[in-house]
């Protein structure tokens, strides 16, 4: 009886996920796949505990399937994952199952929450939660749980390139509790008080403003070398 219930449950969940993928998430994936390549100017504003950095300008290059390059004027601090990893993961629809549920309201838009569970254990992503504007087929927010980088929440806003699903602003919220400074670092001679790490901010935020998209104009492979 228990086995029958388990089988029926699995069949039920599978049927739900397949149905949901074909509707909301697939529409998003189709939109993402319509972008063959793009170039965009980025302004990176990082507010990460223990890192002080001023705004940095960069140019981002992307070409299908997974070519990506950041050409920064100076040193830019960016999330290790987040620019193409999610898109790359989502476009391979055979490697995950998705479950839809009611999402939260983001910027006045009622979203649909899609929980994406990888079926391939080799992937770095353990779980992805996507809040999708189902009318426009746009991901408004995502929460990625990865093996290597922990939890990362990302918020997206769209303006002129919404038809391609390309955001104008990406806000990455990063878990920074893992940061540990090497003890061998030369001591600050002016620091007399012992610092209490527990009082420090635990959330880092990196905002990337993207302007001047050039979509599907063709990019040479040499740029990525």
């Amino acid at each position: 009886m228990r086995q029958l219930f388990l089988i029926l449950s699995l069949v039920f969940v599978s049927s739900i996920s397949l149905a949901q993928q074909s509707k909301t998430l697939n529409a998003v994936v189709v939109k993402l796949n319509s972008v063959k390549d793009y170039t965009v100017n980025a302004r990176v504003v990082a507010a990460v505990p223990m890192i002080k950095i001023k705004e940095v300008n960069a140019v981002l290059y992307f070409k299908q399937k997974d070519k990506f390059k950041i050409d920064a004027k100076g040193i830019a601090v960016l999330p290790k994952q987040g620019f193409i990893e999610l898109n790359k993961f989502l476009t391979n629809t055979s490697k995950y199952m998705a479950i839809e549920s009611t999402g939260k309201v983001i910027g006045g838009v009622s979203t649909l929450m899609v929980t994406v569970i990888p079926t391939d254990e080799s992937t770095d992503i353990i779980l992805a939660k996507l809040w999708i504007d189902s009318k426009k087929s746009l991901i408004l927010a995502s929460q990625l749980t990865t093996k290597s980088s922990g939890v990362m929440t990302t918020n997206y806003t769209y303006t002129d390139q919404a038809q391609f699903g390309l955001p104008s602003t990406i806000v990455f919220e990063i878990d920074v509790k893992r940061f540990k400074m090497p003890k061998s670092v030369a001591a600050n001679i002016h620091q007399t008080d012992k610092q209490d790490d527990s009082k420090k901010d635990k959330q880092g935020k990196i905002t990337v403003y993207l302007t001047g998209y050039k979509v599907n104009k063709g990019i040479s492979d040499n740029i990525f070398k």
Partner: peptide, 13 residues
């Protein structure tokens, strides 16, 4: 190293 689990540094360090 302690930052690179979550962050990446692009540019000429």
């Amino acid at each position: 190293a302690s930052f690179e689990q979550t962050l990446s540094f692009s540019g000429d360090i």
